[in-house]
Write a protein that binds this DNA or RNA. Sequence first.
DNA 1: GAGCACTGC
Length: 735
Amino acid sequence: MANLPILQYEEKIVETVEQNPVVVVIGETGSGKSTQLSQILHRHGYTKSGIIGVTQPRRVAAVSVARFSLTYYVVVRRRVAQELGVRLGEEVGYAIRFEDRTSERTLIKYLTDGVLLREILSNPDLSPYSVIILDEAHERSLNTDILLGLVKRLVNLRASKLKILITSATLDGEKVSKFFSNCPTLNVPGKLYPVEILHSKERPTSYLESALKTAIDIHVREPEGDVLIFMTGQDDIEKLVSKLEDKIQSLDEGSCMDAVILPLHGSLPPEMQAIAYLLFEMGRAGERPTVRVFSPPPPNCRRFIVSTNIAETSLTVDGVVYVIDCGYVKQRQYNPSSGMYSLDVVQISKVQANQRVGRAGRTRPGKCYRLYPSTVYHDEFLDVTVPEIQRSSLAGSVLYLKSLDLSDINVLKFDFLDPPSSESLEDALKQLYLIDAIDENGSITSIGRTMAELPLEPSLSRMLMEANEYGCLSQALTVAAMLSAETTLLPGRSKSTEKKRKHTPLELPDGSGWGDHIQLLQIYECWDECDYDVNWVKDNGLQVRGMMFVKDIRKQLCQIMQKIAKGSLDVRANHRWKESRQDYRKLRKALCVGYANQLAERMIHHNGYRTLGFKPQLVQVHPSSELKTDEEGLLPNYVVYHELIATSRPYMRNVCAVEMQWVMPILKKLEKIDINKLSGGAGQMEEASEKKLTDMPETEVNAAVVANDHKSRIQAARERFLARKPNKLSLVALS
DNA sequence: GAGCACTGC
């Protein structure tokens, strides 16, 4: 413990915290900040007036760091007071979703930032806490950014009673300090070995080929040590893995050692995920938790780990000496003007590049090969990753902030470290207004207040409220839970599993033609009917962990709904209705109300759709959808969708058929929207910028949406043609 | 007729 760098700074840290309400701690990898800051403050009496809360952006980190902190806690207590050890959940505890391991005796509490936000909902002053440590703030998760703003306000309100520590990265610290009225910044060195950074001379024409060549060079020329290669996604990882295999096989025997090549990404097949999961264990004292993936390596054999950015922060692979960094990352972004998400390959930030370098110096001096010139690093890379708050839909966050009722704070002028665009905030307000969470003046409604209690996107919360009125809450709970876990439900989509699935046609329900939400409901009902049989899940090609997760979420949602209703609700996964033929009318109507901002109307004579919003988008039903056509081959006239995602084309993912008479009242409401009033009667400046955005009055835009006249149909056909897959068009042109 | 980076309440 004595050799943890941070402990040499103990007095300096305590002194600075004593004299300042907020302190930024720049702690490099291996400094021990995550486990030691809380211990230091505890030793100096900060747990006498309240608990010390330490937030983490990820669940595993919150749990494992708490365990670590505990071992030190035991040691310290034994030395000082000769006491016997404490148990996890007692003096040191943690809280993550579905798992609260704290007690009234807890003094140090590790928790995810999402859990702390939930706590603030019922205790806006955070009065049980004497200290809040926001760990890994440089990752700038959406929740961390909201916490930063809330905590800044609390510092002013609770004056000397609350201490805030924020841990960040070198390039970010100054900005955070400025945000907190130039609070002091402490630097704590880490325990990394030196890493030599080598840049490419030129920008590669193909980072895949460049990565391949670099990897082979290392394998042939460099002494033993594993190689970690950062790529952007499943596609380029699979390509590189197969090229590496070929190339290494063709090398002369005896010219190099053996090699194992391992892909590593979030959609790994379940059995490989299981291996990574089971081998989860602690790193060495004071370091970040380590996940030993596929360890130990065979003797005299080099491992190549070809990974996404999952190996940047979430997983640590031991034994890495060489890192190859392609300089790119795949990032999900939200466009508030179109309501559309896209997955783009973008350049990484300097912080990310440095994090990747650090992965080479954990066990001994290493090397990092950057597949880009140093000028690109200096001139093109952003210092810090664009914070999530500027890449996400903000409906949920705005509703959350509104529900806190901070009389001194206007959500639109909320003090963010990096404010989102006014366009993005206005998009959120419009969404919330359409689902009755706020009124025309932008004030939160009683429905909105209830919605904020639910750990769901506002659209799904609204659906639950409505379903409760119609008497189909049980079904709605299932749909909400299934959607929340959807990505963990299906198995990884590597080429091998694809083949397998084709040979064994699955006997899953098909949504009776109404679409994906109904299919998800029916899947869960089947599982319920066979008493949550694990084998049923496996036999149908679903992920066991995913379905268990759905069950947990559903249970949690039930509990919250019951608390809200203050009485007993019928929330059983009821499948008796199945006996009679049903059209899920009530449920689909509830979905329509919840997805008021996610409606689409089919074009005449074909199966393309146009979204019904402020900026109509031409979109198609995603090919994976279960939505069925009628006898004439036409899809339903009106649908709701869960999300718009632009991949090869703009698609609606997770679609459900609805009826025109449910849609019309929503369109009426859409016409009435006055963004100035919604923003709380904003001044002339915002009025002017709004005009610029749409270039015509709101009413005209909406008239165009509803009219669907001849002219717009021709225009629609044109745009649809232009939106078609570009490579097909060029093929036609060539032939 | 596609395809999915990573988290989390």
